[in-house]
């Protein structure tokens, strides 16, 4: 079976993202070329202001590049409008944020159900699928707890379950361990690593911690809006 016939899951070509105009113009992304195959686990690192978060926003179709091509499954998505991008996120993407971003006063289960509501999945199946996702992150027994009753690590697990619930093709994680201490960070990274290895989940993660990036298979180093290096990690090479 040859991979050549199938386009890569994600393909960025000469992506430029400019904020502001004239004197205040900032080139957050300045010609990014990148390919990510299905099943990969990519960590993006770089100094602050290097454009790594912007890159993740563009990959997540939350932001739109000023110019360049973004092919998702071979389909050009750089020029989609707001509603089309929302549909793409709904059906193909999952998000994990640094600050967890769970909805307060809703149980863990209800939070995980959220993407499924927008997918139009009925209540019964929704609860079932949300519970499966919670089980994957080891929190099936906390389904009916509010986020305020959960520890930071547990909250981030719920957020990962939410990202998984809709069966996305890529999970985009923005500093998922940024608010956690080392021990909890390791737990979260091991969870992501296992999801990638065992379930074949494609993950793109922005981090500023080298230790965490080592859980990925591939490490992209960005500087000044450009990809400076792109190499396999120890795990990826193994």
């Amino acid at each position: 079976m040859s991979n050549d016939a199938q386009p890569p899951l994600i393909e960025l070509r000469d992506i430029i993202r400019i904020y502001g105009m004239g004197e205040a113009e900032v080139r957050a992304l300045d010609g990014v070329d990148l390919q990510i195959e299905a099943g990969d686990f990519v960590a993006i690192m770089g100094p602050s202001g290097s454009g790594k978060s912007t890159a993740l926003n563009v990959l997540g179709c939350l932001d739109r590049p000023t110019s360049g091509n973004y092919r998702f499954h071979g389909t050009e998505v750089a020029n989609l409008n707001r509603d089309q991008r929302a549909l793409l996120r709904r059906h193909y993407l999952g998000f994990v944020f640094q600050g967890y971003n769970l909805l307060p006063r809703m149980t863990a289960l209800q939070n995980v159900e959220l993407p499924l509501i927008y997918k139009g999945i009925g209540h019964g199946e929704r609860v079932e699928r949300a519970l499966v996702a919670l089980k994957k992150v080891g929190l099936a027994d906390r389904a009916n707890h509010d986020p305020s009753e959960l520890s930071g690590g547990q909250q981030q697990r719920v957020a990962i379950a939410r990202a998984l619930a809709g069966d996305p093709q890529v999970v985009l994680a923005d500093e998922p361990t940024g608010n956690l201490d080392t021990k909890l960070s390791v737990e979260i990274m091991e969870l992501l690593h296992n999801l990638n290895r065992n379930d074949g989940l494609t993950i793109v993660m922005v981090t500023h911690e080298r230790d965490m990036a080592e859980y990925a298979r591939r490490l992209i180093w960005m500087v000044d809006g450009k990809v400076e290096s792109d190499r396999l990690t120890a795990k990826g090479a193994a």
Partner: peptide, 16 residues
Amino acid sequence: TREIGIRMAVGAQASQ
């Protein structure tokens, strides 16, 4: 605002 952002991130359209 944050709730709205979360909903949009998981795929809520403007009309929703």
